[in-house]
């Protein structure tokens, strides 16, 4: 696969105080560090997304520490209470230090 690509699903609008469901998915092999290369017999080095976080208007809503037992293409589903319009910012941190980010706006109806 090409560079890891995040997908997020956030409702476009919510009523004030509503608890919404957020779904996220990112393409990533989550190489566990426990697998051997079939040809060489050497362990394939670990390379996983080790941290995920979701902020709303700069405040952390939900975060997660991930271990190698999380499946490839990690999926996260969680909730957020929306009191005002604003922007959700999603961040995934890779073992190699790369950071993948995306944002979604929400309005209050």
């Amino acid at each position: 696969m090409a560079a890891p690509k995040p997908r997020v699903k956030v409702p476009k609008k919510a009523s004030q105080g509503e608890v919404i469901t957020i779904k996220t998915l990112i393409s990533h092999p989550m190489e566990s560090g426990q697998r051997k290369d079939k040809k060489t017999g050497e362990l394939i080095p670990r390379k996983i997304i080790n941290k995920f976080s979701c902020e709303f208007n700069g405040q952390v809503v939900f975060s997660c520490d991930l271990d190698p037992a999380v499946s490839a293409n990690p999926y996260m589903e969680f909730n957020a209470k929306v009191n005002e319009p604003g922007t959700f910012k999603f961040t995934w941190v890779d073992d190699d230090g790369s950071v993948y980010e995306t944002e979604k706006k929400i309005t209050i109806e």
Binding site: V61, D65, D67, A69, F78, N79, K81
Partner: peptide, 20 residues
Amino acid sequence: VATFHFTAMSGAAEAKTRIR
């Protein structure tokens, strides 16, 4: 496997993922 961290802004203490 994983550790979920919630805050009061999470609204509900629920989370889902997929594991090995």
